[in-house]
């Protein structure tokens, strides 16, 4: 096992982790504000990737326009989901929202199959993203770099948003205590809607990146990354943006390292390791790495 090999595997873990982190941020934001585990988040990722396909390949828009349109489109999807499903449910037990999001996820997936067929479609990003960058023994692609940068920029941007802006203050207040925030004159509906808009927009952006990275998309693609980023968010402590990023990297790294440094036959145990790790982390740190001590008992 050469040094180059070890370095390459570490970079692979970082790249995969960035992808998970990107999806997990949106996930954790929504949880942070209204304690909703939104399983449909992964399906918004899927919608984002198909939007990219439509704008980029069918309509032939320039890339920056596509990126903008996908972000706006994702925000609209997020708002639509909030208005139609989660707002009427507000105040119901947590489990209710979780199950509703699962139902929503199944609904979106089946509609996807109905409208788009389950055939995977190829997806080509502009050539510049496909360029291979080689540094010594390590190589990666431009798109990987872009994903990593996007994840970092978004993380910093969101932390600033939550800390510095009026909307952010409203979000934190709503997260702290919905009723009190309302009494303090914060427009809860608008705050939560904004959160979903941001979450949807992040998911759609992740979908765009996902398509660019793997070059192939299908209506069921959201399920696994949704699940993994859910795990990432939990590991990081749901609700914490920095935690989601860390969680994403931990899961990505863990996956690649399990495959890369154990004998090959264990590659097939990849997901078992990830979830085993998850359970272990939860046992020793029941609130995740960055989570606040949870008040809700069962």
């Amino acid at each position: 096992m050469s040094g180059g090999y070890i370095l390459q595997q570490l970079v692979n873990g970082l790249i995969l982790g960035s992808m998970y982190a990107l999806i997990a941020i949106g996930f954790t934001m929504i949880y942070g504000i209204i304690r909703l585990i939104n399983f449909a988040h992964g399906d918004v990722v899927m919608i984002g990737s198909f939007m990219t396909l439509a704008f980029l390949q069918a309509l032939g828009w320039p890339f920056y326009l596509v990126a903008l349109a996908v972000m706006v489109g994702g925000a609209l999807v997020g708002v639509a989901i909030e208005r139609s499903v989660f707002r009427p449910m507000r105040g119901a037990p947590q489990v209710t929202g979780f199950i509703a999001s699962l139902a929503l996820s199944i609904m979106i997936q089946n509609m996807g199959i109905l409208l788009l067929t389950a055939q995977p479609r190829n997806f080509s990003f502009p050539d510049i993203f496909q360029q291979v960058i080689t540094l010594g023994a390590v190589s990666f692609r431009m798109v990987d770099l872009v994903i990593m940068l996007t994840a970092w920029i978004l993380m910093i941007g969101l932390i600033l948003l939550v800390k510095m802006t009026r909307l952010g203050v409203g979000m934190r207040a709503t997260a702290e205590n919905l009723e009190v925030a309302r009494l303090m004159g914060i427009n809860i509906n608008r705050t939560i809607m904004a959160t979903f808009a941001i979450g949807g927009s992040l998911a759609a952006t992740a979908g765009l990146m996902y398509g660019g990275k793997f070059g192939q998309i299908d209506p069921l693609l959201g399920f696994v990354p949704g699940l993994k980023s859910f795990v990432a968010a939990v590991v990081g402590g749901v609700g914490s943006i920095a935690g989601a990023i860390c969680g994403g990297y931990i899961i990505g790294m863990a996956e690649v390292l399990f495959v890369g440094f154990l004998p090959p036959i264990y590659s097939a145990y990849r997901d078992a390791f990830v979830f085993g790790l998850l359970i272990l982390i939860l046992l020793f740190m029941p609130n995740g790495l960055f989570g606040k001590k949870s008040e809700d008992r069962a």
Partner: peptide, 19 residues
């Protein structure tokens, strides 16, 4: 080497293949 259906990322296996 092995993977599971639904895996999207083969970077770890590829690094091993290269080595």
């Amino acid at each position: 080497d092995f993977f599971m259906m639904g895996d999207k990322d083969f970077s770890a296996q590829i690094a091993r293949l290269k080595n």
